[in-house]
């Protein structure tokens, strides 16, 4: 962490606006967090994170978007929702992590945990092409993008022998309709990114208030 001074007024109205946006997308109130640390204390992954989940909430509250989106935390969160379950202020921290990951990806932030992001991409590529997860293809795709060629070779071979990994993907009949879902979502996301870049107000997304 750099030790420079953070100028909070330089963040300006973007401060509360960022917290409000994250809250709206995650369906929770990011301002509610009172920094008790119960989330971090219960998080099984926090030992490996650069910012504790509590600190991520703090960064969001202060509008320190870059710090939050460049953190390893958002990628190491395993979505187990222990934090959400125990939060005394009913902040859906796990949903906030989802929101931040999605935001980091669509706004082109560099991934602090490249391998995690690569896994998600490889996994979804499989789903997008055949409609179902294709483990072997996913693992190969992942290995190609991360150059972790020899990792997990043992287990992979064992599973192949046990018949746990299929050599060929299962392709569903409606795979085109699944591909279509990905395509539509991608388009909507591009529109949203453009809208934000141009500072136009959000079309009503119906995302607020879900919880």
């Amino acid at each position: 962490m750099e030790m420079e001074v953070l100028n909070l007024t330089a963040v300006g109205p973007a401060g509360p606006a960022f917290a409000a946006q994250v809250g709206a997308e995650a369906g929770t109130n990011a301002f509610s967090c009172y920094q008790c640390g119960k989330c971090s204390a219960g998080c099984p992954l926090s030992y490996a994170m650069d910012y504790q989940p509590r600190q991520i909430m703090r960064l969001v509250q202060l509008g320190l978007k870059d710090e939050a989106l460049k953190s390893s935390t958002i990628w190491l969160c395993a979505s187990c929702a222990t934090c959400t379950t125990r939060c005394p202020r009913e902040v859906q921290i796990a949903a906030v992590m989802d929101t931040l990951r999605a935001m980091a990806r669509r706004e082109g932030y560099p991934y602090k945990e490249r391998s995690v992001a690569a896994f998600h991409r490889a996994f979804l590529n499989g789903v997008a092409s055949g409609g179902r997860a294709y483990e072997l293809g996913m693992i190969l795709g992942y290995k190609l993008s991360t150059f972790e060629m020899f990792k997990d070779i043992d287990l992979g071979l064992t599973w192949l022998r046990q018949g746990k990994l299929k050599l060929l993907p299962e392709r569903i009949k409606g795979s085109a309709s699944v591909r279509d879902i990905f395509e539509k979502v991608r388009k909507l996301e591009q529109e949203e990114v453009a809208r934000q870049r141009e500072g136009r107000p959000a079309a009503h997304e119906g995302m607020e208030g879900h919880s």
Binding site: M1, M3, V5, L6, N7, T9, Q55, R58
Partner: peptide, 12 residues
């Protein structure tokens, strides 16, 4: 911000 462990300044 002692919760963040960072020095902050506000131009008020």
């Amino acid at each position: 911000d002692t919760l963040l462990g960072k020095k902050v300044e506000v131009e008020a």
